[in-house]
Design a protein around this nucleic acid. Structure first.
Lengths: 103, 103
DNA sequence: GCAATAACTTACTTTAAAGTAATATACACT
DNA sequence: AGTGTATATTACTTTAAAGTAAGTTATTGC
């Protein structure tokens, strides 16, 4: 049974409410990164989830994929305008974590 | 294989990065609500996920559970100080959704 | 004694998210 | 011909999230 979305926040969570997507967006805040570099900045992510997540973020218009026709391949990801509009939220979420995560 | 948390944002997402938790917290921003009232404000949530989510939010110190010893039972949920500190983030996430969710 | 009430709880099933590991591509270099 | 490189895909398995539906408690009022 598919449920309706009754609250804008609910919609936001369907786009970025996953384990990895906010982390990927967060690491792109300072500018575009090559695929491999981005993935190394999130060492815990599996290869599969990385590709799957960037695919979905691209489909949802939050990041752009720039392909350079060179060998070996070079691909860069960067935030779109829509993705960039999450910048302050992502920073707040990170700051909140650093303030409340006691080891 | 359990993975380490290398970024505060990752920790934040482990606490509230689910479909329902941010929604529950969001509806408590304006003040405490009775269990039944809160649940009715999120009509899409199943009974089980409601109980499970508030239990975890309580365990993680984001909400308080106030039990009134009356019959039939009365229980209220309210944000803790820690939960309240998410207020502006939750409002931003909701606002972002309303600005980007085109029907 | 039975229904109504509010808030859970439990057992079970389904669906979605995430992990693992192997394989593909395409060319440059040795 | 075989190796290295960067990016990505596929098949498969495991784990976690979510859904469904029925049952529990404790009391009031008929």
């Amino acid at each position: 049974m598919k449920k309706e979305i009754t609250c804008p926040l609910h919609y936001t969570m369907t786009l970025i409410g996953t384990k990895w997507k906010p982390l990927i967006l967060f690491h792109l805040i300072e500018g575009p990164l090559r695929s491999g570099v981005l993935q190394k900045q999130i060492p815990e992510i599996s290869n599969k989830m990385f590709t799957q997540s960037v695919r979905e973020l691209e489909k949802d218009g939050l990041i752009n994929r720039k392909i350079y026709p060179v060998v070996p391949p070079k691909v860069e990801y960067e935030l779109t305008k829509k993705g960039l509009s999450l910048k302050s939220i992502l920073k707040s979420l990170d700051l909140w974590g650093s303030e409340h995560f006691k080891l």
